[in-house]
Every structure is written in C-alpha cells, then in structure tokens.
C-alpha cells in the first residue's frame, strides 16, 4: 500500500543546514497499522509530512498503491491520505462550528451530500447530533480529537497518518480515542501510520514499527519483539528501558547513539 524508499529531507541552508531525514525506507501493507517511534527531532513528523504532501522539498521515492508520488499532489490523492495531528486545541478553527469544520473538505472536494456525510461521520466517531453545532471550546479534549478524526474520515480516505494523536489527552480519553481508531480501522480496512512516544500505545495499536534516531532508520521490529524484548539494536533496547519509568541508575547509563 505505502512504500517509502531513500527518503531524504533537508532544512535550512549553509551552516545551519539540517539533514532531518536520511535514507529512510519502509513499507506498509493495506489494512496494517504501522508504528513510527524514536527520539524527539528524529524526523517522524517530517516523514508523515512528506507522505501527506505538506512538505514538498523531499528527495527519494514514495509510492502509494504502486503509483509513484510527485512532490505536489492532486485532489484525488488528498482524499485518499488524511492526517490527524497531536494538538486537539490547535488543529480546529476556534470560530467554526463542528458542522462547518466538517463540511469544508466536502466543499473543497465537491463531493456533495454534505449534510448526510457530516451526520454519518459524527456517528462513526461516536459523537451524537447534539455536538454538531458546537464550537471547539464547547468540547472536551477527547471530543475535539474525535472531531479531528471525523474530519479525516469524511473524505473516505484509505490511509490515515496519525501524529501523536493521543499524547495531549488524559489516560481515559486516550483509551477512548485508541478504541475508536482500532474500531474504524477494522471496520473500514484503513491503513494507519502512527507516530507515538509511548511504546505501550504503539504496541496496543500496531503489529510492526520503525525505530528512528537522528533522521535515520534504526530497525523495523514486530510487536512480538517489543513484548518479549527480543531486540538486538542497542538504541531500541534503551528506548524500551526508558519506557519502563524513572530509574536513575538506568538513566545514567544511557548512551548517545549516532
């Protein structure tokens, strides 16, 4: 479904030029939920932004359904690939009702039947009709993130790119949103790429994951390896240790991997 090969991204020029993504590659099957983990600034969001078309100055090869993508995308592509961001507060227009927020992409893509589509996605994400004409500030964090998921769903995408979709949410709302994401993926045979710092979240959602460090691929591992700890790369092992909580002795032994 998704194939990424030799992806490279640079930011800035001259002295401050930053090679943010270095020769990254992976494949994701249709209906799979694929995880992306790694340290802060390692290029995870940048990889998603290249796939979604938000970033255009990348080099390499990105294929979806066997079709090679160019740096700029057409409308049909935008329908197929949708993105959900971390921040449920910043990603919705504060002065637009949920109804308006959801109708906007329908209008842009001239899909018609906007009223029914809105009703259907609100139902899909478990928000009843009573939320339809509310503003973002009248919703809880979890409800807002449901709206963000609804906005992604309204164009009937095949792929959803999830950038830390629950890290701004509390544990109960996180559970709600993760349950929702699992259900709609199974129901609609969607393909996900999920970025998260939380290895437990990744293990809960994904069967395979890519570990990144400083813009580079460290390794691709399975959920079973994550569960059993059968991992050979030291960087990944360190991530696993760190995921177990605060342990001063372990922290003092952390290394910088290059």
């Amino acid at each position: 479904m998704i194939a990424v090969e030799n992806l490279n991204v640079f930011f800035g020029h001259g002295q401050t030029r930053n090679h943010a993504v270095k020769d990254v590659g992976f494949t994701v099957e249709k209906g799979e939920s694929f995880g992306l983990v790694g340290e802060s600034g390692s290029g995870k969001s940048t990889v998603l932004n290249c796939i979604s078309g938000l970033l255009t100055h990348w080099k390499g090869r990105i294929e979806i359904d066997g079709v090679r993508l160019m740096q700029t995308r057409n409308m049909a592509f935008c329908r197929k690939v949708q993105m959900v961001f971390q921040d449920p507060y910043g990603s919705l227009h504060p002065r637009h009702t949920i109804d308006r927020t959801l109708k906007e992409p329908v209008k842009i893509h001239r899909l018609g039947d906007a009223n029914n589509r809105v009703a259907r996605v609100l139902d899909d994400v478990g928000l009843g009709a009573k939320f339809r004409f509310r503003f973002p500030h009248q919703l809880s964090g979890g409800q807002r993130q449901r709206v963000a998921v609804a906005r992604a769903l309204i164009l009937d995408p095949e792929i959803i790119l999830l950038d830390e979709p629950t890290s701004a949410l509390d544990v109960s709302i996180q559970a709600e949103v993760l349950n929702l994401l699992q259900d709609i993926r199974r129901e609609k045979n969607l393909t996900y790429i999920l970025v998260s710092h939380d290895l437990a979240v990744v293990s809960h959602m994904c069967n395979r994951l890519l570990v990144m460090n400083r813009g580079k691929t460290v390794e691709t591992i399975t959920r079973n390896q994550l569960k059993s700890g059968a991992i050979s790369e030291k960087y990944t092992t360190q991530l696993l240790v760190a995921g177990k909580g605060y342990d001063r002795t372990a922290i003092d032994q952390f290394q910088d991997f290059r």
């Binding site: 830390e164 890290s167 710092h197 760190a242 995921g243």
Partner: peptide, 12 residues
Amino acid sequence: ALDVTVQLQVLA
C-alpha cells in the same frame, strides 16, 4: 512531547 529517553534525562 518528549520521547521517553530524553524525558527521563530531563527529569534527572
């Protein structure tokens, strides 16, 4: 918003 390793190092 920090990854687990850096998070622990900052907490340290």
